[in-house]
Design a protein around this nucleic acid. Structure first.
Length: 421
RNA sequence: GGAGAUGUACCCAAGUGGCUGAAGGGGCCGCACUCGAAAUGCGGAAGGUCGGGCGACCGGCGCGGGGGUUCAAAUCCUCUCAUCUCCGCCA
């Protein structure tokens, strides 16, 4: 949600920043409605004050035995006028709300300008893509041959875009989850295990609703509940409607959660393998910070996600998402892209974001220092990492000529093995 | 799923139609005691949110959430959500 006071304070500057997203959101119209809303609000408040004054005088008049009937009528008349004006007010309010819920966050000045992910700017690279003296296989072929990935079984059980892991594949998924969570908790994150079904309020708080209800969210029939699309939703909403003690900031959580997405707009993309699933395992990391700390936090959170890739010795690069690829709620963010031999390019494996106060305003998450006023926190999150894509990247990058796969050092203890064969 | 109870500010909690932005605590700030802290005592401020004003301030809303009755609602009615207890069911 937007900070209306900030919009009013310097509308041209605000608009210029929003224009960088390349879409006209009708901000001018919004400001007009907002002005009309405040005018109507003032009207109502003046009338209410008048009515309150009359109401307050009634008990005293009663005591003195004065004529109450006339004054009660007057109050009733004001009450009727108020009802009419309140109706107008509600209409304005609904329009403003609809607008505010549907307009994405303001990009930070440092976000590169661009139209799509092709315009994202590479920030740094780590590791070297492997070279093979044989024809490397894609993870779906490799996994099938090793008997650890069974897409056909998943299709029978449910349908397309679901996966089934078996044996060392299933074990590696579990190993990755454990490894990632252990690593994050050692860096000061508190591990949480949350509900995997979220309500409308929570998904609105983080920005998935109302705009992406049809494309992204699996809704449970005859309820107002949704399958968790990312642990960002339950984890961020831990502090929904709270005023947290400023002394406790920053708050850092990590969580593993199965994530469910409809993938509405992605027909035909990434149809093979583990890359784009309706259900996928993901470890998420989340920060709640003071406003002045959130950009440092974005760097440290991103570094925590990168650390996992480095530990696994997977080559990757970091790109700064451009204004056209930023996402709805983010003010700034990076994508971590892992080298995927079958794609012969880097593929997104983590996305980190600073939402500033956008989510905090929607979810009403504030902090207060002793003796101070409450302020909205800044929220951040990132995948740390998408487990299915990590698994795919390990299979592809660590494959050997004989079709076996070397297990990364840090996973060997979890796997109880050196190789998958 | 059935029956009952509860839901008040950062936390606990009083309050059943007007004198309640809401007693009293805790917490917070200051002082005393102490080597220091804890405990204790004394004093103090503030309270969420929106609108107006440069400001001192003024006004609206607000007692889980929505709707209603009334001149007037924390208080009455209604729907709803959450928590607790008992029964049922179940991993």
């Amino acid at each position: 949600m937007h900070d209306i006071r900030r919009m009013r304070a310097d509308f041209p500057a605000y608009k210029a920043l929003m224009d960088r997203r390349g879409v006209d959101y009708g901000l001018d119209e919004f400001m007009k409605v907002e002005e009309a809303y405040r005018e109507a609000l003032r009207d109502v408040e003046v009338m209410r004050a008048e009515q309150n004054k009359i109401s307050k005088s009634i008990p005293e008049l009663k005591k003195q035995g004065g004529d109450i009937a006339a004054i009660m009528n007057e109050s009733r008349a004001i009450g009727e006028k108020i009802k009419v004006q309140e109706q107008r007010l509600r209409e304005f309010d609904e329009r403003l709300d609809e607008f505010l819920m549907g307009v994405p966050n303001v990009p930070h000045e440092s976000v590169p300008h661009g139209a799509s992910d092709a315009d994202n700017v590479e920030v740094r690279k780590w590791g070297t893509p492997p070279t093979f003296d044989f024809a490397p296989q894609a993870h779906w072929d490799l996994g099938k041959a090793l008997g650890i990935l069974d897409m056909e079984a998943a299709a029978k059980i449910t349908g397309s875009r679901f996966s089934l892991l078996r044996g060392a594949g299933a074990r590696m998924e579990r190993a990755l989850i454990n490894f990632m969570l252990n690593r994050h908790t050692s860096h000061g994150y508190v591990e949480v295990s949350t509900p995997l079904i979220v309500n409308r309020r929570s998904a609105t708080g983080t920005g998935q609703l109302p705009k992406f209800e049809d494309e992204m969210m699996f809704k449970l029939e005859s309820t107002e509940y949704f399958l968790n699309p990312t642990a960002e939703v339950p984890v961020t909403n831990i502090h929904q409607d709270e005023i947290v003690d400023g002394a406790n900031l920053p708050i850092k959580y990590c969580a593993f959660a199965a994530s469910f997405r409809k993938e509405g707009g992605s027909a035909g993309r990434d149809t093979r393998g583990l890359i784009r699933m309706h259900q996928f395992p993901k470890v998420e990391i989340v920060h709640f910070t003071r406003p002045e700390d959130s950009y440092d936090a974005l760097e440290s959170l991103t570094a925590d996600a990168e650390d996992i890739l480095q530990q696994l010795n997977l080559p990757y690069r970091v790109v700064s998402r451009c204004t056209g690829d930023l996402g709805f709620a983010a003010a700034k963010g990076y994508d971590l892209e892992v080298w995927m031999p079958s794609y012969e390019r880097y593929v997104e494996i983590s996305s980190t974001s600073n939402f500033e106060a956008f989510q905090a305003r929607r979810a009403n998450i504030r902090y207060k220092d002793a003796g101070g006023k409450p302020f909205f926190v800044h929220t951040l999150n990132g995948s740390g990492l998408a487990v299915n894509r990590t698994l795919a990247a390990i299979l592809e990058n660590n494959q050997c000529a004989d079709g076996t796969v070397t297990i990364p050092d840090v996973l060997k203890a979890f796997m109880g093995a050196e190789k998958i064969f």
